[in-house]
Design a protein around this nucleic acid. Structure first.
Lengths: 167, 167
DNA sequence: ATAAATTTTCAATTATTTTTGAAATTTTAA
DNA sequence: TTAAAATTTCAAAAATAATTGAAAATTTAT
């Protein structure tokens, strides 16, 4: 497999995978392109490489900056803006985990808490609703806490040992 | 908040959240409904409760069975089929994690492996592609391994200690 | 074997999401 | 300040995904 084929394969796979973490194809592809590019790219570069429109490129670059995984880079002597992605995979996953917790997990936890706190009227269906949403709330809460600990680099000896152990 | 409101809120939130783990609204809502229902429901029950068509219900119930989180339940004396969901949140997350690894993570890992194994032609862009996809491959591999260990209940003292510690 | 009940399938429709492209806005250099 | 360059915005168009509903297939009881 040559460079071009490998590059297209990576960008394509990443694009298809985007829906997994809740971003659209163009956004995931722009990220993939920047992730493997040795130097920052301009909007023109991106449009041309991925064959997408200017508007699309502009909007999705902003989206990626909102996720905190793509940055504007100033290139001296250039009038255009250039973009680069977070290159460190550890930092990348930290950033994604943080954002997903904020955008999805936390709002859900809030609803689960509300729903599981309704008054028990004694009926079977109410009992079941409370029981099940309470269990879900506990699970989501634990997951969120664990995620945030990891995300915040609160890695102590035991965590490090575990990670090593599981590899 | 009364039962009806709480139930609708839970089903609605779960439905909206569905896109997060890659299933459509109807599918997520059917799951939510079964999850909080004290007894198994028939297709009629589900159609009526969620106001969706027969075809939609049929297809999405099958989808949920493919995920391994909804089962057919035989009710003696009933001609219709009845459905129930996995009620244990631990088992539910185990099943989801397992399926997501199989459907998404593993195919991606395969591509990352291929792409990161191309011949280094010495150019800067090839070097960067190899370096970045290799890093991504390692990350995905570790994540998948950890997920599967947890999923397969291979919890040993150190994992248990960690979980307790992080709570 | 028959027919009623139930479930599945799938082409057509409807809804949602993404993308475009051109006008409006902003930025930059002189 | 001006005007060219660059970027953003957003209504309209295109693409994609979900849903319907009725016909076909299957299951069940007699």
């Amino acid at each position: 497999m040559e460079y071009k084929e490998a590059k297209d394969k990576f960008i394509g796979t990443w694009g298809a995978l985007g829906s997994l973490w809740g971003i659209n194809k163009a956004m995931a592809q722009i990220h993939a392109l920047l992730f493997i590019s040795p130097n920052p790219l301009s909007m023109e570069d991106i449009m041309e490489e991925l064959e997408i429109s200017r508007g699309n490129t502009s909007m999705n670059l902003r989206g990626l900056m909102d996720w905190g995984i793509v940055y504007k880079v100033n290139i001296p002597g250039e009038r255009k803006e250039f973009f680069s992605s977070e290159k460190d995979v550890t930092e990348l996953s930290r950033q994604i985990a943080k954002e997903r917790s904020r955008r999805e997990l936390q709002p859900t936890i809030k609803v689960l808490k509300e729903v599981s706190s309704i008054k028990d009227d004694g009926s079977e269906k109410t009992k079941e609703l409370i029981k099940q949403t309470k269990a879900m709330h506990e699970l989501a809460d634990t997951a969120d806490t664990m995620m945030n600990r990891i995300v915040n680099q609160e890695q102590n000896w035991i965590t490090k040992t575990l990670v090593k152990f599981l590899k």
